[in-house]
Design a protein around this nucleic acid. Structure first.
Lengths: 235, 235
DNA sequence: ATATTAGGTGTAAAGTTGACACATAAATTT
DNA sequence: AAATTTATGTGTCAACTTTACACCTAATAT
């Protein structure tokens, strides 16, 4: 085994190491629009960027992405999924960097307090983005594509809603994700038919005249559903 | 801009660089079983591994994955998609390496001639794998999950078939992917209803008594279909 | 009291799925 | 040459899902 290791080590030594970064596309929903959280990186910069950071020697990629997300938001139990590794040789003009992009879905509004001031973070509508650093616009584009793809095939998106929400609110989220206007009545039936929502006794007050019932996600069933497949061709 | 660059450079200099590798899960279908192509890395090694290589200074990740695939198979226009970046600090015991895994779908049998001898490559059934290097078993597991997920929701898998193929052959592929036995007649109807297949005049000879018609993929329609979404909630 | 409005339920036509019967082409046996 | 065999291909029907809308309801505003 030692002999083998030495044989391999020679090969290893000839290789070029690169910096490895992580960037997070942090998506949120404010009730009307799908938003992405951007920061100002340098102090004098005009350019906005995704929240990012460097991979540390003792970290897994997932761990690093979570740490960086926590540094900015103070949030810990967040939906966070690896999106794609970006490795164009010139994506970062300063030095060659491979960035592993993650996308996060968070609940906006509830716990904005944890947001670190250090990064001058700001929410932007995903349909009206400012000029962005490096390939970050491309990263956001891909994250939206992935979100749309996933939400079309499996229950996802509840992560963007507050703990309790109404069906009309949820419809607005899907309208925002797909930039369309679903049929209110069919949407409701379809969502409820998944059996993933628990109806609460409480009604939303003030917003509309009749008031819509609040629902919350049945987390156990939701967990199961996320793990199983839906089907294009299946029994 | 120069000032800014210097400000950032200091930050960059404090960071640790890592080696970046690429590993390919090369999947193929021999008519009966779903297979993965494995190589012997070191000369005296007992352990099988995925085909892999190092990211070179001038390459994008996609380019590097294609190059490495070509080195082994001699194939150039292959379905190749980034799967996931693996970055556990101890995944490679020799030195810290981040590996970006790709999965490839190739047509087996037709053009085996290009296979390089240098790597002692061999096809293994995905359900009967040998002991594998590092986290390569995990990579294959994820690739299968992704293939199943994708094939369930969108037309994919034709990449594993030869240029012309019969419906019963295609059914065998889906049986192998999902390790099940679909209904012959419903499968046929469902596949043909996509409108992605063009019926040829030619029949397969020798294999069965009646002989099944050959089909080929309508590449234009297939391209379009791959780009559009199917829907969980849609109009 | 009445009108207004968003929320919620019902329904009928059209389309899709799943299970299986029946018909067909070609090779093999008698 | 006729009969048998077998994989392929087409048809059908009941159950379910989807789509497009009509209509009812609860609470607020006039």
């Amino acid at each position: 085994m030692t002999g083998t290791q030495h044989f391999m080590l020679d090969q290893y030594k000839q290789q070029h190491p690169y910096l490895v970064a992580l960037d997070s596309i942090i998506l949120g929903f404010d009730g009307d629009n799908l938003k992405v959280l951007l920061v100002k990186r340098g102090v004098n910069e005009e350019t906005w960027s995704l929240m990012g950071g460097w991979l540390q020697p003792d970290e897994t990629l997932d761990r690093a992405a979570n740490r960086i997300l926590f540094e900015l938001t103070g949030l810990n139990d967040v939906y966070l999924e690896q999106l794609h590794a970006f490795g164009d040789p010139h994506r970062d003009p300063i030095t060659r960097t491979v960035s592993v992009a993650y996308f996060a879905l968070i609940k906006v509004g509830t716990d904005e307090s944890g947001l670190s001031d250090a990064y001058q973070a700001q929410w932007f509508s995903v349909y009206e983005l400012p000029h962005l650093l490096f390939d970050h616009a491309q990263m956001i584009e891909l994250a939206l594509k992935r979100l749309r793809y996933k939400a079309a095939h499996q229950p996802i998106g509840f992560e963007l809603m507050p703990e309790k929400f109404t069906i009309p609110q949820l419809k607005k989220l899907f309208d925002a994700i797909y930039n369309t206007d679903f049929d209110r009545r069919n949407f409701s039936r379809k969502i409820l038919s998944t059996g993933l929502l628990i109806k609460l006794d409480e009604k939303q007050k003030g917003f509309s005249k009749k008031g819509a019932y609040y629902y919350q996600v049945d987390k156990e069933k939701y967990q199961q559903a996320s793990e199983s497949l839906l089907s294009f061709i299946a029994n």
